[in-house]
Computed example of a mutant assay.
Amino acid sequence: MAEPGPTPGKRAAGRPKRAVLSRESILAGAFALAEERGADFTLAALARRLGVQPSALHHYFHGRADLIAGMRGELALRVGDHGFDRLPWHEAIIPWAIAYRDTFGTHPGLIAALATLPIESEPESMVDYERVAAAFARDGYPEHLIVPALVAVESFVIGSALDALTPDDNLRPSGAEAEANAPTLASAERSAREAAVARGRSVATETFEFGLTALVAGLRAAGETR
């Protein structure tokens, strides 16, 4: 007597013969691969990691550039809103910039690729930038300075995300001769490290938040005088 087959409408027990793909699973795999290889991975390598043929990825992403755009969009969603619709721009942009640095800093190998990507094909970043620009405009910031101000903050954030990867004593002159040639720098660098340690924070974080506060104050002043 023949063995009964699986009940109609139910999948047979065991692993599916093909990997189940979704936009979310592809992005998760791409982030994991980027942790190992940086931004230099190929769609073929990603397909191997996911156990599918490269052609399967094209149902979700047109190519590698489209995939990178999707990864940037995912990070933009993680950065979040931070109250631009209800707070003055110069208040909301501080936690936004901190979240931006922290989010992008978790994927150092992707920073250059993400930072140089146009937003034209990536709606999540458009929504994020629109939110920030609308807050500037609502608060009466000169229209012709909104994009320069936003780019200035973003450039500082991206540079700081990279700086966070360097040693805390990256600017310390090394060796007796170096300290003799740069005594002011040596003393200032030591003072910065000691101040950060006293506050229980890293030099990179202290430097970033100091610089961000100063930058935003400067942008406010520039918007009032031009």
Score class of each variant (00 low, 15 high):
101 R>M: 01
127 V>L: 09
89 W>K: 10
149 A>C: 05
184 T>V: 15
117 L>M: 12
142 P>A: 09
90 H>A: 06
198 A>K: 06
141 Y>Q: 08
119 I>Q: 10
188 A>L: 12
192 A>E: 13
61 F>Q: 09
119 I>V: 15
155 S>R: 15
109 G>S: 02
125 S>Y: 12
127 V>E: 15
203 V>T: 14
59 H>K: 10
98 I>E: 15
107 H>N: 04
126 M>C: 14
75 L>N: 00
137 A>Q: 04
151 V>L: 15
122 E>D: 11
198 A>H: 08
188 A>R: 07
159 G>K: 00
104 F>E: 06
114 L>V: 05
125 S>M: 08
98 I>K: 07
91 E>M: 13
77 L>D: 08
162 L>W: 06
109 G>E: 09
168 D>P: 02
136 F>N: 01
145 L>V: 05
123 P>W: 13
202 S>Y: 02
177 E>T: 12
65 A>E: 13
207 T>R: 14
72 R>Y: 09
68 I>L: 11
192 A>V: 09
166 T>Y: 07
91 E>S: 09
120 E>N: 11
69 A>K: 03
97 A>E: 12
59 H>R: 10
127 V>Q: 07
110 L>Y: 01
68 I>S: 01
158 I>H: 03
192 A>W: 07
174 S>G: 11
85 D>T: 14
171 L>T: 14
191 S>T: 08
98 I>C: 09
205 T>Q: 15
121 S>D: 14
79 V>D: 04
116 T>D: 15
159 G>F: 03
162 L>N: 04
207 T>V: 05
131 R>L: 08
76 A>T: 13
134 A>S: 14
146 I>V: 08
111 I>F: 03
184 T>I: 14
182 A>W: 11
117 L>V: 04
143 E>F: 10
146 I>P: 00
148 P>E: 04
102 D>L: 14
194 E>P: 07
176 A>F: 12
169 D>R: 02
154 E>K: 07
200 G>V: 09
78 R>E: 10
196 A>M: 05
105 G>A: 06
158 I>G: 00
71 M>D: 10
167 P>A: 10
93 I>H: 00
87 L>K: 10
183 P>T: 01
137 A>I: 14
202 S>M: 02
114 L>Y: 02
82 H>P: 02
98 I>W: 04
147 V>T: 13
171 L>H: 09
206 E>V: 07
112 A>C: 07
138 R>A: 07
177 E>L: 12
157 V>R: 03
147 V>Y: 08
71 M>G: 03
85 D>S: 12
63 G>S: 05
199 R>D: 05
106 T>F: 08
74 E>I: 06
67 L>A: 06
90 H>T: 12
152 A>C: 08
73 G>D: 00
173 P>S: 00
120 E>L: 10
129 Y>G: 14
181 N>H: 11
182 A>I: 06
